[in-house]
Design a protein around this nucleic acid. Structure first.
Lengths: 173, 173
DNA sequence: TTTAGTAGTGAGTAATCACTTACAAATGTA
DNA sequence: TACATTTGTAAGTGATTACTCACTACTAAA
């Protein structure tokens, strides 16, 4: 991965995340990256290829975060880690997550590859804890995580820590 | 509102919701609506004007749904109604909500005008019920609603009713 | 019946789109 | 050094974009 390739990827991530994939032109990406427009096509074949590389990187980052959770055996620990995820997104990864969440609403684009294994682990966790409907509880936790991530990414509530505390209390963590 | 105007609005809503605002051309909207492209600009000035009319209609629909909740006095009833919202979205309104949720991720576009009053009512409700941190609880309910709506709109979980039941149980409704 | 305003169209417009091509510069490799 | 490959650019390409313009058809009031 050369320096200019990374410049292109960084510029594309920034622009796709803030202005949207469809409304970001390849010429704008090139200008932001400080390279000629043709270089984008040399390295990434086409605009979608560029998006796919970014998506793949994001997907890997997501899987890495989930991998730790999937290996956790203590059920309360599993739930705690998932609830904490949105509140420990690092500033430098905001754009990546914004883009990921925005792309969810594109028609073709629904990927369960790294939420499915978590769902399984969650069901086991709630089962161990004696909850009545572990499948429903797993779904609820994921909804909660999704809603929390959306809130953090879009309007960053000022009582973040209070919310997380109240959440933990709910699950007696 | 003439018939052709409504045709344009319906076509635009459908296409904006399924393919995205930026990647839907005015010519595509015109074709879908069965009118000349020029008519769109006669009636709605420009592409953004067309979107704004749709947005305004959606916003009114949203406010109407919230109005009932804001006037409810019984605290448990307030919470129940909000949690139920995503599970009673009518099929005919799916496109409207999909578009609303997708547009949230557009930069300029964060509108709290009809979630703010609900937040106030929720805080009161949790306060009345003796919860320790009503502000955080209100935020959590809204996150839950948001996550549930996202789930329903994007992948329509097959255990919808179980989830809703488990949710109600959590708040002793 | 004249007049005026609105509804509607089809053929334009310049600008921008994603992408290609021809070629030069840099880099590796024998 | 000689040669092959990769990296990079500038100037294109046709297609599509949002939008305009000149015009006709229709409706309603004076």
């Amino acid at each position: 991965m050369t320096e200019k390739q990374e410049n292109i990827l960084n510029a594309a991530l920034k622009l796709f995340a803030t202005e949207g994939y469809a409304s970001t032109s390849t010429s704008k990406v090139a200008k932001e990256a400080g390279v000629s427009e043709g270089l984008i096509f040399r390295h990434f074949k086409n605009k979608e290829g560029l998006l796919n590389v970014i998506r793949e990187k994001s997907s890997e980052a997501g899987k890495a975060m989930m991998a730790d959770i999937v290996m956790t055996s203590d059920p309360k620990e599993v739930i705690r880690k998932i609830l904490e995820l949105p509140y420990y997104i690092e500033k430098e990864n905001y754009e990546m997550w914004r883009l990921t969440y925005a792309l969810k609403w594109q028609t073709d684009n629904y990927d369960t590859s790294y939420s499915d294994p978590v769902k399984v682990v969650l069901r086991e966790a709630f089962s161990k804890l004696g909850y009545e409907d572990p499948a429903a509880e797993a779904e609820i936790i994921l909804m909660l995580m999704d809603g929390a991530a959306t809130a953090v990414l879009l309007h960053e509530p000022e009582n973040k820590l209070d919310i997380l505390m109240a959440l933990k209390l709910k699950y007696k963590l």
